[in-house]
Amino acid sequence: MHKHLPGESIEQKIEERIEEGRFIKFLGKNVVGIADHIGKLVMLFLQIIFWTFRRPYDYKNINKQMNEVGVNSLVVASLTSVSVGMVLALQMGAASKNILGEPLYVGTAVGFSMVKELGPVLTSIVIAGRVGAAITAELGTMRVTEQIDALYTLGANPVKYLVVPRFLACIVMVPILTIYSNILGILGGFFVSVYKMAIPSTRYYHDIVDFMRGKDIMHGLIKCVVFGIIIALISCYKGFTTEGGAEGVGKATTQSVVISMVLILVVDTFLTNILQFVGIG
């Protein structure tokens, strides 16, 4: 409650109330807007599940998307993971040398970091940038040029025809690329350890296999399936809801990449907590 304080004029009070009104309106609009997006995302997700299990399968299109998401991302995923593996080995080697006098547990640090965190997160972020942007731009252009409406009128459901192949490609290819990135990252670390820090190769090997359990690998794989879902869902949703011509496509693409990347990092935090809580990794 506002009391009329001495020295406070009626105009000031009115001004304050207007400010409050504006603030509540601003807050309300945003809360409603976000709730609306979440609702539509859930609806899209349910539609994807429905159409995924409905025959016939469009193998040609699924294959094309798998190629696009998986095979065409190999180079960029390789470069990222090898570099990260090497840097990890260098840093861990230097740190343990400073503290303990010799490079210790380099394989363990590289292996665990890659398999549980950096493999899934970095691969997903690279794919969100490369594939997520392409999906939003393509679907967004189809939306603004009425091609998505045309699909409806020609008896094809756009979710079945456009989204399901991309969704399947993401949830299958992100984990496969992650496994590939993990291997390359560990190999990168291996080369630095063996040839730069003169760690015996058997020691690097045992540093990993003596400690790593099946559930550590599971931990990483569960994460990247979830990240794959995030990338497909956000990029398709943003593409489908694009409006406003070429400028709209640009905006939607940027938003799609930013939202996917931030969500991957935020969800990673929660997911790590949950997975550790239930005893997976």
Binding site: T141, M142, T145, E146, Q147, D149, A150, Y152, T153, G155
Partner: peptide, 16 residues
């Protein structure tokens, strides 16, 4: 029901 319709869009909306 939509199968009963043919639709010519303003910008043609051909699949690129």
């Amino acid at each position: 029901i939509q199968k009963k319709f043919g639709f010519l869009f303003q910008g043609a909306a051909l699949f690129d």
